[in-house]
Computed example of a mutant assay.
Amino acid sequence: MRMLHTSDWHLGRSFHRVGMLEHQAVFLDHLVEVVRSQRVDVVVVAGDVYDRALPSVDTVRLLNDAVERIVDAGAQLVLTSGNHDSADRLGFGGRVLERGGVHLRTRVEDLARPVLVADDHGEVAIYGVPYLEPALVADRLGSARTHQGVLAAAAERVRDDLGERAPGTRSVLAAHAFVVGGEISESERDISVGGVSSVPAAVFAGVDYVALGHLHGPQRISDTIRYSGSPLAYSFGEAGHHKRSWLVDVGEHGRCSVESVPAPVPRPLAVLSGELDELLNDPRLGGAERSWCHVSLTDPVRPRAAMERLRTRFPHTLVVAFEPRGERPESLTYAQRLRGRSPIEVCCGFVEHARGGDAVADGDRALLADALEGGRRAQDEADLEGRRTGAA
């Protein structure tokens, strides 16, 4: 049985206020082609299909189209809900969709109801464990109100069901969880409960392959316990990631062979640091000209119109930080950070910071200048009135 393990699509997500739906569509086109060319039997998506509980109409349409094409390419589809999804909304119509090969696992009641896929060696039971919010499901599972408690109870239900099946039945468990040994990224939402956010891999003992979702970096906890990671980078901290899916062959006696399937990169990430003029003229940075860029400027004095000037060479610059060489910004006092800057530069700097590095437009700069001038005149009039009152 051949399975494609993927997760954390986060359909509808934006990257520093830039919509990613077009790039997510590129990944889904790639995934459908992999299903077709590699003769994939089952696609498993381990949670966070959507980025939010109420996705936009265009986002829902994108998923609907992808589901239809995956099934048409010859694969069944197993989708679990993650901590970003609305389990009820994602799971709507699940019983009907199963007739067409689309299996939604979003409810506690379905933890031990596997999707059964047959091959020459018998059946493979695929169990889907959605993200389990301890406060909501612990009582129903009879477990402690912790991430580990609810997952351990869910895995026990899976083992109980597996024990009642024919000897030799192979198993796959898809779960949205934070497993000990996994490396976090900046773009994941914390799921810690009571200070405990991770579970030991031993929780999943007795299962032939564990397809994990939640962490955005592809990684191997063990040979048979893996995170596929997100198909696209959703933070600059993921600039070093090599995004992928896992192609898993579940053979006789549950032996698994795993192959990496690199994901397309519609636009790479670049993290740049240096003085503005150096960055604009460095021939070694040609590759960053088509990348999303995070730029740390090390000039001793903040350059004027830094964002506009950077975008003349790096048009996809999204974030600009000012970090003078030799000084750590977090170690400077507020007065030191403002030294040498005019009132209008202070105001524009604040607006740029609040907007995530976006430059202040000429019109906005003029409004700020008018406001500063109005404030100055009001202060002068108040001072003059004070002197008159004192003289009287």
Rank of each mutant, 00 (worst) to 15 (best):
I344W: 06
G74W: 03
H216E: 06
H241C: 06
E373C: 07
D48S: 08
R313P: 05
V301S: 07
D58F: 10
V199E: 04
A201C: 08
Y50V: 03
R170Y: 01
H30G: 10
Y131W: 09
Q219M: 03
R377I: 12
V320G: 03
P268E: 05
E98G: 08
G82E: 02
D249C: 03
V117A: 02
D223E: 13
D65W: 11
L97A: 14
L269I: 02
G206V: 08
G19E: 14
Q24G: 05
V42Q: 02
L116A: 13
V319G: 10
C348Y: 03
V180A: 15
T106A: 10
R387W: 14
G181Y: 02
E308Y: 06
A125I: 07
E109M: 07
R388K: 15
A125C: 09
V18G: 06
D383W: 15
L367S: 15
R341S: 09
E275P: 12
D380F: 11
A392L: 15
G357K: 09
E330P: 05
R113D: 15
R255F: 13
R304I: 11
L212R: 04
R17V: 12
I191N: 11
R39D: 13
R311A: 02
V172S: 04
P167I: 07
E188C: 02
A66D: 04
Y209I: 04
G100C: 08
P200Q: 09
V117M: 00
G286Y: 05
L31A: 10
V115P: 01
R105E: 00
R267E: 04
R39K: 14
A175S: 11
G181N: 03
P329Y: 08
L104C: 07
G213W: 00
V360W: 04
D8N: 05
H176M: 08
R140I: 09
